[in-house]
Amino acid sequence: MTYIPLELSDLVLAALLLIANGVVSIWFRLGLERSLAIAAVRMVLQLGVVALALRTIFALNSPLWTVALALVMTAAAAFEIVSRQERRIQGPVAFALGAGAPFFAGLVATLFATTIVIGPDPWYAPRYVLPLFGMMLGNALSGTSLVLDTVTSAAVRDRVAIEARIALGASRFEALDAILRRALTTGLTPIVTAMATTGIVALPGMMTGQILAGVDPVSAAKYQVMIMFLIAGSTGMAVVAAGVGAVLLITDERHRLRLDRLS
């Protein structure tokens, strides 16, 4: 089996299904046709720019350019995380947490994969590092966003109960224990569901792409299993870091609930 290249006309044909979604939105008066069009255009432009950037970076094979693109990806992820929060933490510290949690988790998982599991030569080859880091970062982004939103929303909703526990002598982590556990569960649920349904309900994008490119299905499945394990690990690290960080940010060293720090 050989790789079948796609032409521009093939992409136009595939876009007909997206147009069908727009028709559904208009027919049922959902008001999503504009959002669908903007998201589609944004996706195409972003993928086009990233593809050209990756082609250049792959050719250069430079650790400096690899790190630079990884930092740009992290900054974009942090912006998405902060913008998704209904009650966001004020100040640059929120952006730092939104960037730090997924970046640290993605970095650890990517370095583990390239230095121990896969072992490419060199280990920092951008062809391996950037795609892996992107997958780790994207999934950690979702988990981090869910955790932060759950912690801040629940803290506002359960303010009286939290302050009552603190008044009775509980520390900030004891007072927010139930909320933190609920937030961690919420952040980890998507990856748990994805692992449980992978292979039976759906073939993941990476495995499908490799099969379409001519890779043996068994080899593609091995890579997919590795990726799912890495994603689960990185998401877990990001979720815990974000949850603990959120608790620290909405309280102070005197174990007082500081909802004034939320916008």
Rank of each mutant, 00 (worst) to 15 (best):
P190W: 08
A164L: 09
V24M: 12
T198M: 03
G245E: 05
I200G: 05
L111H: 06
T2K: 12
V240W: 13
V12F: 15
A202Y: 06
A213C: 06
P126D: 06
Q210D: 00
L168P: 05
L176S: 14
R182T: 14
A113P: 04
G91M: 06
L212K: 03
R29P: 07
E253R: 15
A76W: 11
I166G: 08
V24P: 09
T197C: 04
R258L: 04
V192P: 02
V239Q: 13
M206D: 00
G31D: 05
I231C: 01
A161R: 02
S62W: 04
A167S: 04
R157M: 13
L248R: 10
R258F: 09
A109H: 02
V72S: 06
A109S: 02
I191K: 03
V50S: 00
G214Y: 07
A194Q: 03
L30N: 07
A20N: 03
S219C: 05
E86Q: 10
V23T: 08
I19A: 15
A155F: 13
A221V: 02
G214L: 02
D158F: 12
L203Y: 11
T144K: 14
V12M: 14
Y128P: 00
W123P: 02
L176E: 13
M207C: 00
T198S: 04
T2H: 10
M237T: 11
D10C: 05
V108S: 11
A241I: 15
M135Y: 01
E33A: 15
F95Y: 12
S153C: 10
G187L: 04
A105I: 13
T193P: 02
A94R: 05
V160R: 11
P204F: 01
G199P: 05
L168Y: 10
I26N: 03
V192Y: 04
S83G: 07
T150H: 11
I231S: 04
D177R: 15
S83E: 08
V50G: 00
A53S: 07
L259P: 08
F58L: 10
V244D: 13
A113I: 02
A75H: 06
L71G: 07
P5N: 05
A113F: 05
I211E: 01
L8T: 15
L16R: 08
L17R: 07
A76F: 15
I118G: 01
V244S: 11
L36G: 11
L148R: 10
I26K: 14
L45W: 10
G169S: 03
M206N: 00
L249P: 12
P190S: 05
M206F: 00
I227A: 03
T198E: 01
L47T: 03
I227L: 02
A94D: 13
N61R: 12
I116P: 03
R182A: 15
L54N: 00
R165H: 01
Y128R: 00
F28N: 12
F28T: 12
I4Q: 12
L257R: 09
L97E: 09
A194H: 03
L60S: 04
G205N: 01
A161K: 02
T197L: 03
G138I: 00
V41L: 11
V23N: 04
M43Y: 10
A241E: 07
S142N: 15
V23F: 15
G119S: 05
G243E: 05
T189M: 13
P5M: 12
A238V: 04
S234E: 00
R55W: 10
V12H: 04
L36F: 09
P131H: 01
D260F: 07
T150Q: 09
A40C: 05
G243S: 09
Y124D: 09
S219A: 14
R261W: 13
A178L: 14
